[in-house]
Design a binder for these strands. Sequence first.
DNA 1: CGGATGTTTGAGTAATATCAACTGTGGTGG
DNA 2: CCACCACAGTTGATATTACTCAAACATCCG
Lengths: 258, 258
Amino acid sequence: MPHDHNDPAAAHETVPHGALPPVVAQFKSQCSRCSMRELCLPVGLDPEALAALDQVVTSRLRLHKGDALYRDGDPFAALYAIRYGSAKTVVLMPDGREQVAGYHLLGDIVGLDGVAHERHGSTAVALEDTEVCVIPFAAVAGLAREHPLLQKNLFSFLSKEVGEGLHAMLLLGSLRAEERIAVFLLNLGERYRRHGYSATEFVLRMTREEIGSYLGLKLETVSRLLSRFQAEGLVKVAGRSIKLIDIPALRLLAGQRC
Amino acid sequence: MPHDHNDPAAAHETVPHGALPPVVAQFKSQCSRCSMRELCLPVGLDPEALAALDQVVTSRLRLHKGDALYRDGDPFAALYAIRYGSAKTVVLMPDGREQVAGYHLLGDIVGLDGVAHERHGSTAVALEDTEVCVIPFAAVAGLAREHPLLQKNLFSFLSKEVGEGLHAMLLLGSLRAEERIAVFLLNLGERYRRHGYSATEFVLRMTREEIGSYLGLKLETVSRLLSRFQAEGLVKVAGRSIKLIDIPALRLLAGQRC
DNA sequence: CGGATGTTTGAGTAATATCAACTGTGGTGG
DNA sequence: CCACCACAGTTGATATTACTCAAACATCCG
């Protein structure tokens, strides 16, 4: 099989959109009953709009760690809402270098960059076993014409992503390595908190290399700084388990962001 | 007058949305007759949708060099399409550092990051005397429900901005200083080309410091690299006038992007 | 249990920032 | 219209940050 996800050369498997294996197709989505509905596309929708969404968001995909949800260059057809698990989005260079551009947790919607050119401009890869809802874009955009709030949500998610891009530029363009790490940790904690998890104690789903790529640093730099933060009593690190100890000090480093 | 644009402390004037000075309010927009219509929000619209847009995009603003179109924290009400001139968008840190996040030429639409939170998350400043069309967002979003193509264009502009954010992350996170400069120059040339200007000979509207901020470099580094590129015969630099000489070599540096 | 993958830490290096001096250049008022 | 001033840009010497290369150690998975 080409693109087997255990094959280190092929690296990741793209889930085909047309013929889904039965084991995947059987999962039926229902936004109206989804536990994520207050953090995802359905936020604030009236029952009628929700019912309409249910008609259109009908399938889910299950991904294994390392599977690609879509790849750079794939035709764009749908957005994907993460029901559980997590994913990274990666931008590739012709020479093979790559930049992790985003780190997405449950409730997040990925694939938004594909709308403009009807083709994805990045690759999304599951960081652990992950389930996503498939949101066929054309259908939902059609629905949005009848349901202003749904349209508003779509605009809103797109715009939020724009804003995140701006802050990523600030992070990568203006902050020192230690500041980037502090922002990263606080931001991640904040996102977990919003989902009802601890903001101060969590498990990273990325390798040091992926964190480094996201922050524009090398893996050794990430490792060293985490060690230093630990020595200074800012955090407690045990492999991928992180505990934030001195939040005010981290905030200071991060310059009050987050 | 507070915020006079000649006052170095106030730095830039925010144009108030409510009471526009008469000299500004007198300019009537007409998308249907605008020379930018094929590069801006109206692209591809049918005559009916265009006429509807004309009803809603009714005013223009004139800005002097250094005037702010909106500022970080301002309530969001409208998008702005650049009719002529250019602008930078800037993201600010609490400690005063700032990062130039975008460089916008005619036809570009700025303000897209404000949709989500109904508040702008960045500041847009004119780099020269500039005129923009005011696109009241709520009204246009309403129209978009009746005109699928207009909706599509709105989604498309938002999504394009997301994609640009991804590429900015690649630029800032993975490229060396010389590669960033090469990408910057080629990208700028490409954008001028699209507007019918020369792709190889143009005038920068930014200072070295602004370019540096955009690229995550210091002004001295930008200056040095431009000098080096000139010494190597890649470009001809005379202050802000740039001529790209050896495009293939620049492309090679840029890694085929652009 | 063993290999592969990921992490830590050290020593030396390269890239870019910083500090500083000097040189254009464009706009303004005399 | 010219002289001047503030601002923008260049260039050099030095400092610093983060990278590279390398080796040892840990952890996960089959």
